[in-house]
Design a protein around this nucleic acid. Structure first.
Length: 840
DNA sequence: GAAGTGGATATACC
DNA sequence: ACTGGTATATCCACTTC
């Protein structure tokens, strides 16, 4: 066999068994653009952590006994091949542990079950999954350039003939893998961009496989654009250059496979394609007996079971963008839904073709042209979104050292956890195990911990305010005070001068927790995440664009998830005590800082968790910065307070019921006239557009010019319009998400009634949809006490309910704002009510 | 059947 | 179940008079 060498960027990871052993199979590219498959092996082992004070003699005996373990499970013969005694760390403590090598990773769990000996305290490291284990062992980090040398497997029958069965340019059994230093990267390596193909299907039926696939579009980054279809208006052939007709649906599926194989992308990407496009293609392929051989080994897509389906294609990364966007960006997005339409609008500034979905049987020639165009447009949007998010996927994948396939489907806890697992080596740490079902149940029932502190504001309009906030507060606290599961001490006396948490209440008991002064691996790792967050934030400030903003937000999310991870019941490094302590510190720092600012004669207006707003009085920005640096000089470790912004005016209102100030609800305006609105109905999607617009306008008038009189005039005008039925139904639509399936609701709120109506009218609606409805006048002669009795769908004819929109939508949206100026808006509405009553 | 209250539900903030 | 806790607000479900 020939020795060969190449550079290599790993993209897709998989493994296979040959003669009972595991082999990693990694697909990627060389800088020449060749498709390359690397086959490699690594040691397979687990850890048995020994109890303290087990004698050397006993250890020897134990090693002998374990060495003899042989298993015959699932038709595989696995045995313990070697046992070594090692000095390791577990949760930061020195331990003696046996490194137990076995034949097949999948059998490690069964090997662990054989290790019930009393000298063994814990068994660890058998539940990472082979791919993660391999990446950790061999440092073949995804999407980083490597130099590979080894034997060519092309045309070889070795290892099950893998070199012949894969559609790649080269297949190499690796002897040596070396990372390319970033300074030594060639231009071709630096310029690497993956081959991407976006796809989208159209069907009349939304239920998987129920209807025909009418067309499928494909778009790549090199000008390839196709709509494959067999449908047209009679015999009139489209003039659109990208439309390609085939005989029937089966031929469409075959053509689709043909193009994917021809282009052979690194990424096949779609939008909601895990849940719709790919399973649909599979269902139809099964029906017509078409071999959906998309994999590089001509295998069909494989679907994971479970609630969240995901489709895997061998050698090609099937990437459903919606999942990644949901995890990494959803909480920072303005879009009301995660539909392709909304997301494209937000990130690409591009709207989808306005297209009314019609049943395909009703389309004429023009209708079909529009439909083809629309189908292509979706794939175009998908590939543009991929291009936008590629830098982020790349960064995440390199950071947490997991393949893009997994990164794009994982939740935030997995991000944090993988970062830890892939970085334990430098601490000589044995990985903690995943919690068992019982662990999880216990953790969930243990009750929560007390959270952050929110300052109760005094309602009013204020001038000249500053807002300070702590940089990545929870993460800074973990790092500064060395808080984690591993550094938690059993009691105060375990260590001299331990770190002491503020007093807190946990499980109804007032107590404190103590943590080691010795730097723990967990806080140390969090420092790395924290630094990345800082770096990307600075980058965004220097060069603000969509990508730098997205990346900054992405790492903000990751950094902000660290604390959530510690308190997450599914986490390997879960710690209720650490979580409670982190939050106790959060409260303490916020309250202490409030006190210090008050001592400098500033009136505090508001504060939530890590922020504080106060009146700057006659001080200028420089003086405020001085105050800030004074406060910072007193903060320990990496704790840092920063000036978020100075605002010209700010408004806080009462709660709906009482006279106290409402928390999490305020509006600010800076000197450039830019508004920052939080919590108000304006930013809530479950209020009708009219209420949101009216409130937004009122807030603007009040904040910009301090002109509540004009705001009042404006509201009066709107009230008149409502009374005169001059408002379009479209502005009165209320949108509420159906969070559960209809039958699971214990009560029957309006949006569930709307969803039921949709079902009756055969409008597709499922859990997770945003349900739209408006409130109409009650049917004649019928008393409708409940709101739900007046629910109508947007398509249903009817008159909007004047009283409802005045009293339940407009009034609540503006009443509290005017109350700040002692204007009783209710009086104005009352007139309206009498008038409406008079109308009938 | 009006009034009051707690629960269910959705959404936002950090 | 798939990061956490804090908070507001609506409408329903139920009790009471």
């Amino acid at each position: 066999m020939k020795n060969t060498k190449t550079d290599f960027i790993p993209i897709d990871y998989d493994y296979f068994d040959c003669n009972g052993r595991n082999y990693a199979k990694i697909i990627g590219r060389s800088s020449k653009g060749e498709r390359i498959c690397i086959v490699d092996e690594c040691d397979v082992f687990l850890w048995a952590i020994l109890r303290d004070n087990v004698s050397d003699k006993k250890i020897k005996k134990l090693i002998k006994k374990i060495s003899e373990i042989q298993l015959d499970t699932k038709g595989r013969q696995t045995k313990v091949e070697k046992v070594e005694l090692k000095e390791k760390n577990f949760l930061g403590k020195k331990v003696k542990a046996l490194k137990i090598y076995a034949t097949n990773y999948k059998d490690l769990h069964d090997v662990a079950d054989e290790l019930g000996m009393k000298e063994i305290k814990k068994r660890r490291g058998y539940d990472l999954g082979y791919v993660s284990h391999y990446i950790i062992e061999k440092d073949l980090t995804p999407l980083k350039w490597h130099e590979i040398s080894g034997k060519s497997l092309d045309n070889s029958k070795e290892l099950g003939g893998i070199g012949m069965s894969l559609d790649v340019d080269k297949c190499i059994k690796a002897d040596s893998i070396k990372p390319v230093k970033s300074k030594k990267k060639t231009k071709a390596q630096k310029d690497f961009t993956p081959k991407v193909l976006a796809y989208d299907i159209e069907s009349d039926e939304l239920e998987i496989g129920d209807g025909e696939i009418i067309m499928v579009s494909l778009v790549d980054n090199n000008g390839f654009q196709k709509v494959i279809t067999y449908k047209k208006d009679n015999e009139k052939i489209s003039k659109l250059p990208y439309v390609e007709y085939v005989e029937d649906e089966a031929a469409l599926l075959e053509k689709f496979v043909e193009y994917v194989r021809e282009i052979s992308p690194d990424f096949l990407t779609g939008y909601f394609s895990d849940g719709f496009d790919l399973p649909y293609l599979r269902a139809r392929a099964e029906k017509f007996n078409v071999d959906l051989a998309l994999g590089l080994d001509e295998s069909r897509p494989r679907f994971s079971r479970g609630r969240n389906m995901s489709g895997k294609i061998k050698g090609i990364v099937h990437l459903d963008l919606i999942k990644f966007i949901k995890t990494a960006y959803a909480q920072y997005m303005k879009s009301e839904t995660l539909s392709l339409d909304d997301v494209a609008k937000e990130f690409l500034g591009e709207e989808k073709n306005p297209f009314e979905h019609q049943h395909s049987s009703k389309l004429d020639y023009e209708g079909w042209q529009k439909y083809y165009e629309y189908n292509l447009q979706d794939s175009k949007l998908v590939i543009q979104l991929f291009n936008k998010f590629w830098p982020d996927l790349l960064e995440f994948s390199k950071t947490i050292q997991e393949p893009v396939f997994d990164v794009s489907r994982a939740g935030l806890s997995k991000y944090v956890e993988n970062y830890i697992l892939h970085n334990l080596k430098k601490f000589n740490e044995i990985p903690e195990k995943r919690p068992t079902y019982n662990d999880i149940r216990e953790r969930r029932s243990s009750g929560g911990v007390t959270g952050a502190f929110v300052y109760e504001p005094t309602p009013g309009l204020y001038e000249n305010l500053a807002m300070f906030d702590f940089t990545s507060m929870h993460t800074s606290i973990i790092i500064t005070h060395n808080l984690s599961k591993g550094t938690l001490l059993k009691n105060k006396k375990q260590e001299k001068n331990p770190i002491e948490s503020p007093e807190l209440t946990l499980k109804g008991k007032k107590q404190k927790f103590y943590f080691s002064k010795k730097q723990g691996f967990f806080p140390e790792l969090m420092r790395e995440i924290f630094n990345k967050r800082k770096k990307f934030k600075a980058q965004y400030k220097k060069d603000p664009n969509v990508i730098t903003r997205a990346r900054s937000n992405a790492f903000k999310v990751l950094s902000a998830s660290v604390h959530g991870y510690v308190g997450f019941f599914g986490a390997r490094y879960y710690s209720l005590e650490a979580s409670a302590s982190i939050l106790a510190f959060v409260r303490k720092y916020n309250k202490d800082t409030i006190k210090k600012i008050e001592e400098k004669d500033h009136k505090i207006i508001y504060g939530d968790t890590d922020s504080i707003s106060f009146l700057i009085k006659e001080k200028n920005k420089k003086q405020i910065k001085k105050l800030l640096s004074d406060l910072n000089s007193e903060l320990p470790g990496i704790m840092e307070l920063e000036l978020e912004k100075i605002y010209k005016r700010g408004l806080w209102v009462t709660t709906r019921a009482g006279k106290i100030g409402a928390k999490k609800k305020y509006a600010l305006i800076d000197k450039e006239g830019k508004l920052k609105i939080r919590g108000f109905e304006t930013v809530r999607r479950d209020w009708c557009q009219l209420s949101r617009n009216v409130q937004d306008k009122v807030l603007r008038l009040v904040l910009k010019d301090g002109d509540e009189k004009r705001a009042l005039e404006y509201v009066k005008k709107i009230v008149e319009k409502i009374k005169n039925r001059e408002i379009s139904i479209k502005d009165l639509i209320i949108k509420t998400q159906l969070k559960k399936s209809i039958k699971d609701y214990k009560s029957l709120p309006p949006h569930v009634v709307a969803a039921k109506k949709m079902k009756e009218q055969e409008i597709p609606v499922t859990q997770g949809n945003l349900v739209e409805y408006y409130i109409s006048e009650p049917p004649k002669g019928k008393k409708a006490r409940l709101v739900r009795e007046k629910v109508k769908l947007p398509g249903e004819k009817g008159k909007y309910n004047i009283e409802y929109y005045l009293k339940r939508q407009i009034l609540p949206a503006v009443e509290n704002i005017f109350q700040v100026f002692d204007i009783k808006i209710k009086e104005i509405m009352k007139d309206g009510k009498q008038k409406t009553l008079g109308d009938f």
